[in-house]
Design a protein around this nucleic acid. Structure first.
Lengths: 238, 238
DNA sequence: ACAAATAGTGACTCGTTAGTCACGATTGCT
DNA sequence: AGCAATCGTGACTAACGAGTCACTATTTGT
């Protein structure tokens, strides 16, 4: 045949995706470590040799699954950082956070299964095939921490000091998303992002004013953001 | 020999513990699924047959590691629930939460490595050897949810509705503890528990009052409660 | 002291797994 | 069309891993 129809590239894409899809499903069901190459090629209906044509090993496959998400997440954080710096001279501090929230929500919706995989495996030891996922987790926390530091330096917010704020928001957000994926009836989810973000922004401020008022209803701060997974800030670093 | 010295029981204890200790170390380093029985008996310096005398399989060993923690955690939640009900007719709502925080901190300090294992593995699929750990995670979330519901029913607090509140606090606490174990410089940890708890309790209240005030400094609410699972907190104490 | 009961051992079986490779099929190029 | 490059395949190997078991050693009851 002499049709330069790009069949090569097409086949490559199809096979690679079949392997990735099969693997992802198995990873979610049994955990990355427990899944064998044989199971994956079985699920993808290809021969074992094909797997090794496209991936060095299971770790490589996992990395290929995680990479697009990682790219998007990283750029979301970068974008927020930039917007935060701009906000220092004119603006609404909340805006950049809202943008981050939206970006990250988009990531979750775009790669739902990869996000689920991340939620399953990101806390384990950085060993073997799990390594790329744990690296993403580090990137997330570092990104959040960075934002905290920037906001603090710019004096835009007075949240909890340093990394702590980032950890709280990331921790809460990740479990919320986990439970949502699990079909758990979580409650007023739509209102959560705003809640979360204001917690971050005002939580510190509130703290700064150890408030004397004990049990009385307080006119709280405005619920403004729409964060989902993101809201982080605060100073310090690891 | 005819000395009813209870050597049998003693040996049993020693061996069991050796196996558990070796296994726990390996689990933390490589992840539960990746560790083999051979590695465990190697680490414990016993024969493979001995492992199977004391444990049915790896899952059984994991269950035996997790069980004491599970017991303590469950009773901590139960105790808090009881105290909460009492508090309904006389009192300080924060107290039961403070007690829970203290109890749970005690658990973390008493079984640090098991807690680390929990933090590593509790989010994964409930498969194979991980099952007992995932069950503990469910117990934790259910316990926290139960407390939220009780407090709500009693009208003691007006936080986020039910489960959501539990999820936020558990999620934040677990990541805080994770980072602490990782040696991360988290910041004012001692003050966190109080911060966290008041966020939960007051965060909702604030939300209930969609506050009109936008960006201006707000007199915040009082920081009163105590943390939940996280070991930190600040009220009282120092 | 002695036999029965219980514990400890590690070689062994048997299934499984990661990774390879020689061969036939497809695609690309001219 | 004709040939070279790339791809797809599944049998194969070498290693490993879970679980067993016949045997030896220790503990216990009497």
């Amino acid at each position: 045949m002499a049709a330069p129809s790009g069949k090569r590239a097409e086949n490559r894409r199809v096979r690679t995706e079949a392997l990735q899809r099969a693997a992802l499903g198995l990873f979610l069901q049994y955990g990355v470590e427990a899944v064998t190459i044989d199971q994956i090629v079985d699920g993808a209906r290809t021969a074992k040799g094909s797997f090794y044509r496209y991936f060095r090993d299971k770790t490589d496959l996992v990395a290929s699954l995680v990479e697009p998400l990682k790219r998007d997440v990283s750029s979301s954080f970068a974008r927020c950082a930039e917007r935060l710096r701009e906000a220092s001279r004119e603006g609404n501090v909340a805006k950049p956070y809202e943008g981050l929230a939206q970006d990250l929500i988009r990531c979750v919706l775009q790669y739902p299964d990869v996000v689920r995989l991340y939620l399953h495996e990101s806390r384990g030891p950085k060993n073997g095939a799990r390594a790329p996922i744990v690296e993403l987790a580090e990137a997330v926390l570092d990104g959040a921490t960075e934002l905290s530091n920037i906001a603090h330096e710019l004096g835009l917010v007075r949240g909890l000091v340093g990394r702590l704020s980032a950890i709280v928001v990331v921790g809460a957000s990740e479990l919320i998303i986990t439970r949502l994926f699990a079909g758990d009836d979580v409650g007023p989810v739509l209102e959560m992002p705003g809640e979360l973000v204001s917690l971050v922004l005002d939580g510190v401020r509130a703290r700064a004013t150890p408030a004397p008022a004990p049990d009385k209803p307080r006119p709280a701060r405005a619920a403004k953001k729409v964060a989902k997974k993101p809201a982080k800030k605060a100073p310090r670093r690891r």
